[in-house]
Design a protein around this nucleic acid. Structure first.
Lengths: 168, 168
DNA sequence: ATAAACTTTCAATAATTTTTGAAAGTTTAA
DNA sequence: TTAAACTTTCAAAAATTATTGAAAGTTTAT
């Protein structure tokens, strides 16, 4: 397959994967584009490449910066802003894990903790089932949380080395 | 907090979490409802409880069965179908991991493998960057895949025991 | 101070996803 | 059979989410 076709295919696949995981399709596509681009690109270039509007490009780029996945760059003597993606896939994974942990896992843990203080007749099967479910989910979420904590601090080779060695 | 309020809050939280992870909000809510219900429920009861239409309930229940998260039950001498959720949170996690691996990770791995056969001028920075990215993503995805494989086969206590021990 | 170069905003519009509900389909009992 | 009880389907409507693009805003050079 030729590079041009492969790029298109990769951008499409990354966009699809993103949308299946609750990430805006366009955001994932812009990220894909920057990920395979050796040079930083301007808003203009991104707009052309993906056929999206200026407003969309601007918002999407801002979001990607918010996720810590891309950065602005300035070239000497130029007014334009250039955008550049971190190419280290482990950093990307960590960054995504970090943000989703903060934005989603932590709020859920908070709610679960509130819910574990539910009151009522301790003989009521409804209450018993409810408390058991909350407790179990809490434990699982706690383990996920700890594992993510470790991942956030770890080097890639150490992390997978450790995880996969255990599972061999 | 009273049980009734806690239930509502849990259903809402589970629905929100689902929608953030690309799972239909209603589907997650129906799952939440069944998860905290000691008894199997009928379509009718689910419709009432969540204020959703018959068609929506029916499709959602079918999807949940497709994900392996709930089952139909029949009560002796009754025509109605009852629905019941697996209450084992580790099974739920495994089931979701299994389905998403099959539906999303595997197709992506397939595309990545095709893309790693990209051709072109080996001196072209565009090609070099592209190949490097694909290769790195491939490696990471491979490790995720192996870890999920292990998780699918493992008992909960063993899995977290092993993972967390390594990281302590 | 002015204007050109560039970026951001946001109300309107478009696209996508979800939900409805009535009709069609199926199963069971008598 | 028939009809009641129950389930499924799916076109249309509603709700949600994403995108556009032109106007407003900002920065820099002169």
């Amino acid at each position: 397959m030729e590079l041009a076709a492969a790029k298109l295919k990769f951008i499409e696949a990354w966009g699809k994967l993103g949308s299946e995981w609750g990430i805006n399709r366009t955001m994932a596509q812009v990220h894909a584009l920057l990920l395979i681009s050796p040079e930083a690109l301007t808003t203009e270039e991104i707009m052309e490449n993906l056929s999206i509007s200026r407003g969309n490009a601007n918002m999407t780029l801002r979001d990607l910066i918010g996720w810590g996945l891309i950065e602005k760059q300035h070239k000497a003597g130029e007014r334009k802003e250039y955008f550049f993606a971190d190419k280290d896939v482990w950093n990307i994974a960590r960054q995504v894990a970090k943000e989703r942990k903060k934005r989603e896992l932590e709020p859920v843990l908070k709610v679960l903790n509130e819910l574990s203080a539910v009151t009522g007749n301790e003989k009521d099967p409804e209450l018993i089932t409810f408390k058991k479910s909350i407790e179990d989910i809490n434990k699982l979420a706690g383990n996920v949380d700890k594992t993510l904590e470790t991942m956030l601090k770890a080097e890639e080779s150490w992390f997978w080395g450790s995880v996969l060695k255990v599972f061999k």
